[in-house]
Simulated scan of single mutants.
Amino acid sequence: MNDILIVDGYNVIGAWTELKALQNSDFERARDLLVDKLSEYQAVTGWQVILIFDAYLIPGKETKTKKSKIEVIYTKKSEKADQKIEGLIRKLQNVKTRIHVATSDMAEQWAVFSQGALRKPSRELIEEIGEIEREIKKSTTNGQMTQKVKIELDEATRKKLEQMRRGF
């Protein structure tokens, strides 16, 4: 069985205290941090992850990109994330695929459920990602206390290192 997780990006950011606070000061960084967290989720679960953002903040035609093996879709100007999610369910649904949709929008949860997809409230996804992060931290430290060293980097160096880390 192939599992696909479709994430309503702005809905999850709005439900995630840390990302919601970051969104107010650095919108792009909040989106990037969500991609990073979903990338870890994808690596652990093995699920395909598709992240959808409404284009109401980025007018124009639909754009698709790949970031850390996460497919990121910005809807076209007149299209809501909910519409895109429902269209993707119709396109991707088959007997070998189980589709999960992460959103806190109750109307959208019922719409995707009626199409045969599984509902995953944003809070549940956030809790699962938190558990994955705790497990990763626990396994990498083997229960030992580690001393953290923070090295200040300029933005250009940070971006270059991030590109190297992600392999592009």
Rank of each mutant, 00 (worst) to 15 (best):
M1F: 13
D3W: 02
D3T: 12
L5Y: 07
I6E: 00
V7P: 09
D8V: 11
G9I: 14
Y10K: 09
V12W: 03
I13M: 01
A15T: 03
W16P: 08
T17D: 14
L19D: 01
L22Y: 12
Q23D: 00
Q23A: 03
Q23C: 00
D26I: 02
F27A: 11
F27C: 08
F27V: 05
A30I: 11
L33F: 11
L33G: 00
L34N: 10
L34G: 11
V35Q: 13
V35R: 11
E40A: 15
Y41W: 14
Q42T: 04
T45I: 04
G46E: 04
L51C: 06
I52A: 15
F53I: 06
D54C: 11
E62S: 14
T65P: 02
T65L: 11
K66E: 03
V72C: 14
I73F: 12
I73K: 08
Y74Q: 12
Y74I: 12
T75L: 15
K76M: 05
K77T: 04
E79A: 14
Q83D: 05
E86P: 00
E86H: 07
G87Q: 15
L88C: 06
I89D: 00
I89C: 01
R90L: 07
K91Y: 00
Q93P: 00
Q93W: 02
N94D: 08
N94H: 02
T97A: 07
H100G: 07
V101M: 06
A102N: 01
M106V: 14
E108D: 00
A111V: 08
A111F: 02
V112M: 13
F113W: 02
F113A: 14
S114F: 07
A117G: 05
A117Q: 10
A117L: 03
L118Q: 15
L118I: 15
R119T: 12
S122K: 00
S122M: 01
L125V: 05
I126K: 08
E127C: 01
E128A: 07
I132Q: 12
E133S: 12
E133R: 15
R134N: 00
K138T: 08
T141M: 03
N142G: 03
N142A: 03
G143F: 09
Q144H: 07
M145S: 02
M145W: 03
Q147L: 10
Q147A: 12
K148P: 02
E152R: 14
L153G: 02
D154L: 11
T157Q: 06
R158M: 10
K160M: 04
L161I: 09
Q163I: 02
M164N: 05
M164Q: 06
M164P: 01
R165V: 01
R165M: 05
